[in-house]
Simulated scan of single mutants.
Amino acid sequence: MANTYTQLDIHLVFAVKGRESLIHKRWREDLYQYVTGIVQTHKHKMLQIGGMADHIHIFLGYNPTQLLPELVKEIKTSSNQYIRERGYAKSAFSWQVGYGAFSHGRSERQTVIQYIQNQEAHHSKRTFRQEYVLMLQKFDIDYKDEYLFDFQDMTGWVGDQ
């Protein structure tokens, strides 16, 4: 009997609502572990997770038995609840509507992993808006400014006190 085999690497990006710097270093790893659990529960493979105080990058080996929008919804909904229940955010926490999803070939894995691991260095030179627009352009995705995340154009980030 024949089987189905896939190798689909997806890089997800989404932002905190209002682009507030609410993801603090003191609990960021807890959030990443929680999100990794969601990804693995749905039979995807976490390749790398990281981000900044106002956005997150999730790079995963995608299992096509689950629709991508359903996975993103599960990650956002469950992590919102997780953050609220633990009182991690000083103000109301939620993710912005929408997300970016970018596919990568296996030969790009290490480059994407390193990119996510080096978020602090990237954002010392460019804003999240600049980073995100460059990603959209690299993947030749048509976009309209009014439908992008709510951006606050500042380099660096606040919120890691």
Score class of each variant (00 low, 15 high):
Met1Gln: 11
Met1Lys: 13
Ala2His: 13
Asn3Val: 12
Thr4Met: 14
Thr4Glu: 12
Tyr5Glu: 13
Thr6Phe: 15
Ile10Pro: 07
Ala15Met: 14
Ala15Ser: 15
Ala15Pro: 06
Lys17Asn: 14
Arg19Trp: 08
Glu20Tyr: 13
Glu20Ala: 10
Ser21Asp: 15
Leu22Cys: 07
Ile23Tyr: 01
Ile23Gln: 03
Ile23Asn: 03
Lys25Glu: 13
Arg26Gln: 12
Arg28Pro: 00
Arg28Ala: 13
Arg28Gly: 03
Asp30Ile: 01
Leu31Phe: 04
Leu31Glu: 02
Tyr32Gln: 06
Tyr34Cys: 00
Tyr34His: 07
Val35Tyr: 00
Thr36Ala: 09
Ile38Phe: 00
His42Asp: 02
Lys45Cys: 09
Lys45Phe: 08
Met46Ile: 13
Leu47Ile: 14
Leu47Trp: 02
Leu47Glu: 06
Gly50Lys: 01
Gly51Phe: 01
Gly51Glu: 02
Met52Asn: 04
Asp54Cys: 09
His55Cys: 02
Ile56Gly: 00
Ile56Asp: 01
His57Phe: 02
Ile58Glu: 01
Ile58Lys: 01
Leu60Arg: 08
Asn63Gln: 05
Pro64Tyr: 03
Leu68Val: 07
Leu68Arg: 04
Leu71Met: 09
Leu71Asn: 04
Leu71His: 02
Val72Leu: 03
Lys73His: 14
Ile75Asp: 01
Ser78Tyr: 01
Ser79Arg: 00
Asn80Met: 05
Gln81His: 13
Tyr82Phe: 15
Arg84Ser: 13
Arg84Ile: 10
Arg84Met: 08
Gly87Gln: 04
Gly87Asp: 06
Gly87Asn: 11
Tyr88Leu: 02
Ala89Val: 02
Lys90Asp: 11
Lys90Ser: 12
Ser91Thr: 14
Phe93Ser: 05
Phe93Met: 07
Phe93Pro: 12
Ser94Phe: 10
Gln96Val: 00
Gln96Lys: 07
Gln96Tyr: 03
Gly100Gln: 04
Ser103Leu: 07
Gly105Pro: 00
Gly105Phe: 09
Gly105Ser: 15
Arg106Ala: 14
Ser107Ala: 14
Ser107Leu: 10
Ser107Thr: 13
Ser107Met: 10
Arg109Met: 12
Gln110Asn: 12
Val112Gln: 05
Val112Ala: 07
Ile113Gly: 02
Ile113Ala: 06
Ile113Met: 10
Gln117Met: 12
Gln119Lys: 08
Ala121Asp: 12
Ala121Trp: 08
Ala121Ser: 15
Ser124Met: 09
Lys125Thr: 10
Arg126Ala: 10
Phe128Asn: 08
Arg129Gln: 15
Gln130Arg: 10
Gln130Ser: 13
Glu131Ser: 06
Val133Glu: 09
Val133Leu: 10
Val133Ile: 15
Leu134Asp: 14
Met135Ile: 11
Phe139Met: 08
Phe139Glu: 11
Tyr143Trp: 08
Lys144Met: 11
Asp145Lys: 11
Tyr147Trp: 12
Phe149Asn: 03
Asp150Leu: 13
Phe151Gly: 09
Asp153Val: 05
Gly156Phe: 04
Gly156Gln: 04
Gly156Thr: 08
Asp160Thr: 11
